[in-house]
Amino acid sequence: MTAAPIHLAGERLMLTPEGALVWPAAGLLAIADLHLEKGSAFAARGMLLPPWDSRATLDRLVALLRRYTPRIVLALGDSFHDGAGHTRLDAADAARLRAVAASHRMIWIAGNHDPAPPAGLGGESTAVFAAGPLMFRHEPDPRLARTNAGEICGHLHPKAAIASRGGTLRRPCFVADSRRVLLPAFGAYTGGLDVADPAIARWFGPTARAFLLGRERLFSFPLAAARARA
């Protein structure tokens, strides 16, 4: 597993092939859009999806924490698929989350799916987390251009399509330019939105790159190439 370094507002950040952002200087690890309990939210609507999505997502989170040993764990919003999601967590999964919150500074950023902080799981909640020159929030903010800060956000579930010799390959990805890093969704059942969609593309300048998640490393492409033929 090789993480890729990038620079944002003078800070050195690492993007990991698992889809997390690590800020070594601050001992911080951020992930976006866990969408825990998406499976049970669908089950309530009559689609009985396999019930292990929260477990699968937490397995991957715990592995990340072991690998990068951050002091601060920051979830960039939509940590639960809906406001009541945390109440449906399996007892074992809830205990794991509480253990994470007990051994780290755990910060829950509010998302549109989970505007209220998850009760009983520990950690602190906030709409925006500012640290040094960096702003962590759920959704990209149009006012960023008027500041000197760097922004780290989620919400949009970026995914890129790359045409290769073996056909078009689609992967979740980071999108980053000199001002902003957009994280891929981390949840086991979270799908993606093509980075060429205006909902994503409009937030980024011409130098933006997409970093596609791979098994061992990231694959970097100019954002403009991420939908074109290779």
């Binding site: 790359i162 290769s164 010799r165 073996g166 390959l169 098994r215 694959f219 492409f221 190439a225």
Partner: peptide, 24 residues
Amino acid sequence: ESVRGAADEDALLAEAEALIAEAT
């Protein structure tokens, strides 16, 4: 003929990445 599911996807991505890096 593109070969369905033949090559390792990551290897294909690496190839595309190198190609685009060279071209751009």
